[in-house]
Nucleic acid binder design. Sequence first.
DNA 1: ACCTGAACACCGTTCAAGT
DNA 2: ACCTGAACACCGTTCAAGT
Lengths: 197, 197
Amino acid sequence: MTTRRPYHHGDLRAALLTHARRALEEKGPGGLSLRELARELGVSPGAPSRHFASKNALLDALALEGFEDLRALLAAAQHEAGASLADRLTALSYAYLDFAAASPALLDLMYSVKYDPTASPELAAASQQLPAFAARLIEDGQHRGEVREGPADEIGLPVMAAIHGYVALTVAGGIPADIVERGLKDTVAFALRGCAP
Amino acid sequence: MTTRRPYHHGDLRAALLTHARRALEEKGPGGLSLRELARELGVSPGAPSRHFASKNALLDALALEGFEDLRALLAAAQHEAGASLADRLTALSYAYLDFAAASPALLDLMYSVKYDPTASPELAAASQQLPAFAARLIEDGQHRGEVREGPADEIGLPVMAAIHGYVALTVAGGIPADIVERGLKDTVAFALRGCAP
DNA sequence: ACCTGAACACCGTTCAAGT
DNA sequence: ACCTGAACACCGTTCAAGT
């Protein structure tokens, strides 16, 4: 009457993603091991390959998940916030920094150079979502008279670059820990100044 | 009368760094292999460990080299350029983008999350050089009356964040290739606007 | 001081075979 | 359809021994 592991895991794919995300944050993409994941899930070393063709494919899937989470987070911040551009940009920035603080390795992975030419086109598309998001933000600001005239993408791109750049620098240790929040506020204020009519 | 490899390589450390840098750009940090480097240099598998305690230590040394190269490049751009803030910021931005285009994987490595707690303090210091650089740029601009009053680091940090962020997005494929230069110009113009008195 | 060469404990990936 | 289990060709790292 031994309770044996069922032959089928149930949802190995989802379990792999969950465990991989934790491993990524703890040990980085280099330290993440498919065999170790398989061991944790009580499954044979070759089992993951049925769901992800390679370690790189698993990392790509993680990055894609990250982009989806980030998009949801940024969208939520937009709706919660007050209607003014300042409020919305502030909410967006904090949401972005929170995401980065919670999942630094994932953010790093999302915006890292891809060496695998097999990388999915969905991932490439997802990594270009930030500029589009910024353009919509700016358009709204223009309708409200808070942003100067001009192409929305031309104004939005630098805004997003500033926020992304600041968060990226923070995650990489380029900003001393004690001035992180101060710097974010400065960056948002600077961006608002650049948008002003 | 066989010409044998000399027992000592001569300058294995430097040779490892050179070959590692090429391998990094071709295959990424995960694809870089110490054993393969040793093979290329006609040296035994254990030889690299005399010069770099681990693969991570070699990557850290590469990143440090990258920061030195970047600093030299940015400094040179400052001196070559005309004296106006617009010229200097433009020159700096192009120099930064050129560096990123020539060594995308290296830039990625320089600003990637470090998982090794053994990471050198020099590397940590080097990754914080950008804000200091920006502050000096802004101070000069203030003396010339091209930049509004205020703490130079408070103004300089967002400027550097915008340029770094734009370059980082470009390297990661977040900016469509055909609008890369246009976007850089927009970002510089936006930054100048944020600095204006 | 610097490197060899063998050993150790791992990897990712593949694939016939099992359920 | 999904997984096993063994095999293959690699890794990084360590360390006695050689020069």
